[in-house]
Amino acid sequence: MKKNWWKILSAVLLVYTIVAGLLGPVPALPLLQETIRNLYFHVCMWFAMMILFTVSVVYAIKYLRSLDLKHDIYARQFAVTAMLLGVLGYATGAIWASYTWADPNKPLLNSFSTIARDPKLIGAAIALLVYSAYLILRDAIADIDKRARLSAVYNIFAYAILFPAIWILPRILPSLHPGNDGNPALDVKNDISASMRVVFYPAVIGWTLLGVWIATLKVRLQLITDKKLIS
């Protein structure tokens, strides 16, 4: 029970996010209106994705320092869970965009090619592609130690190039996405009203903890499966 407090916290925070997120007060902005509630899901999921990718890289570095296969399993499972959150973030973002950005006079699919050009969407798409390539690289190598080492190297290399690029791209490409005009990040203090921030922060923590929970379950399963390999 002592070790499980954060799982309970995660569940409580997510229940709070859903209840307060759907019922709480939100500012009525033109165009956005009630869709702004998606902030608690879409944005928070992508925050959680970034955090989990970072955790994955940290474990990759730990693997290279220790050559302990356990760290490799952690790195892989955190990357997979982050990808799951990334796909969910895409889905929620697509719903949001279809109500706000899409041209109502055209069929929804026709707007897709314009929407998908948005730099933040490109950034998220690249992150997902990089980690898909990471998983393919892993499957391509039969030797376990070599697989762990090469994929850790690729993980660190790709992350180190990807994240500066995600910060640079929005400064160069035009965007409809909020948090624009030279500041690629969401300016939490100014862009989100106080009444929304009380839900936003817990939501980020809640989704991240849920991701960690899923990842640790997968890690434990993998550790049991590979028990013989890891002494």
């Binding site: 950034g123 592609l129 390539a133 393919i136 690289l137 690729y154 790709a158 190039i161 791209l169």
Partner: peptide, 14 residues
């Protein structure tokens, strides 16, 4: 090529 394409996209766009 598979490993490289996603990594190179940002630079190529730039």
């Amino acid at each position: 090529a598979l490993l490289g394409f996603p990594v190179i996209i940002p630079q190529l766009v730039l």
